[in-house]
Design a protein around this nucleic acid. Structure first.
Lengths: 201, 201
DNA sequence: TCTTTTCTTGAACATCGTTCAAGATAGAGC
DNA sequence: GCTCTATCTTGAACGATGTTCAAGAAAAGA
């Protein structure tokens, strides 16, 4: 059902994603309204539903961009570390920094709740998997005891754990924590998870 | 602004929380509608706004119940462990089991996004803090090198990390993972985080 | 019993996502 | 150029939603 993306940088689809990205970055996911975003993109309300299935579909495209940017940051970061352990630490710092600098867009990636049963399309999942794969590399060096299958799973666990820490700390619903304490905590978490050689599993 | 809670088990407030809890448990947070919940509770639409400030306010009361039940489960669990390390492992298993058995209600606790700037009331934050405090105990035994302040922070980190793992694994948006693989991963995470004595921080 | 306060009601309002029939536009074939 | 067809565009309309509010009912106090 996903129509071919025309390469043009000035298609309606592109302008809509731009407008939605701005809106989410400024007002958060909840601040994204169909009427507002179509006005920003300079088209009628209904045109949105010709370009995309849904508002959720539009958000998915914004989120894909965000994931791509994080993946690019990971790419740079991976070149920074001397050994695998340092690479892992750099990746963690990169993640924290990215989340802090792109708060709204980053939360939108995880706040979007697809309706019951509807799962993300392949072109979206691919991006998430690419992120995990960047972790598998250094993790494999640090944990030669784990099978490829276990490595894949453990990389996701590590990602999810860091995600949970950053997310729950950023969310001011519960007691707010000074931002400069997040990075050390995440570093401790990652170090503990990667220094697992002495202890089994 | 929070009015006195009358003790009666059959007040309108109580019936509304009951109805909302059922609705969330069955349909998820997104399935909770003002008209539906007031019909279930047997009152008019407007009565909701006399009993509670808001729909969000109602959800907060449902979430408080959920947090109380998790705290009770933690209470039982803490009596189960021989030493501190085992206690911590039991707490982790308890958390995972609780989240799996109360999926919708548990996600509602973290899915509720208060409007910009509005933070949770004290009577709600107290419940979250109580949960963390149950972790601080065994963690203090395992990590005598940490100051009280660092302990409080590290307990939150641990909680948030486990939360992230369970949350991201349950969310079928990204690749789904068999449920029986979650518990071992969380166990490995907790073990790594508590066995930090040899490594610094 | 009268007065005052509190609770209850459901119609009304504003806003939202989404649909759709009608009009505009753009190619394709000749 | 002309015609037919397919696609894009439009904005009014629909149904659902959260919230408000004036009016009436019930309860509480004196």
């Amino acid at each position: 059902m996903e129509t071919q993306e025309k390469p043009g940088r000035d298609t309606l689809r592109h302008r809509l994603v731009d407008a939605a990205e701005r809106r989410i970055a400024e007002q958060g996911l909840a601040g994204l309204k169909a009427r507002q975003v179509t006005a920003d993109a300079g088209c009628a309300l209904g045109a949105l539903y010709n370009a995309f299935d849904d508002l959720d579909d539009l958000v998915l495209h914004v989120n894909a961009r965000t994931l791509d940017r994080l993946a690019a940051a990971f790419d740079d970061a991976r070149r920074g570390g001397e050994d695998a352990e340092e690479t892992m630490a750099v990746l963690a710092r990169t993640y924290v920094r990215f989340a802090l600098e792109n708060r709204m867009l980053w939360s939108a990636v995880f706040a979007l709740a697809l309706p019951e049963g509807r799962s993300a399309p392949d072109w979206y999942v691919v991006r998430y998997r690419a992120l995990i794969d960047q972790i598998v590399g250094p993790l494999a060096t640090l944990r030669p005891d784990l099978s490829p299958d276990q490595l894949q799973l453990r990389a996701r666990t590590l990602f999810a754990a860091v995600h949970g820490v950053v997310g729950l700390f950023l969310d001011a619903r519960f007691l707010a924590v000074p931002q400069d304490r997040i990075t050390p905590e995440v570093a401790a978490l990652v170090k503990a998870m990667t220094r697992g050689l002495s202890a089994a599993d």
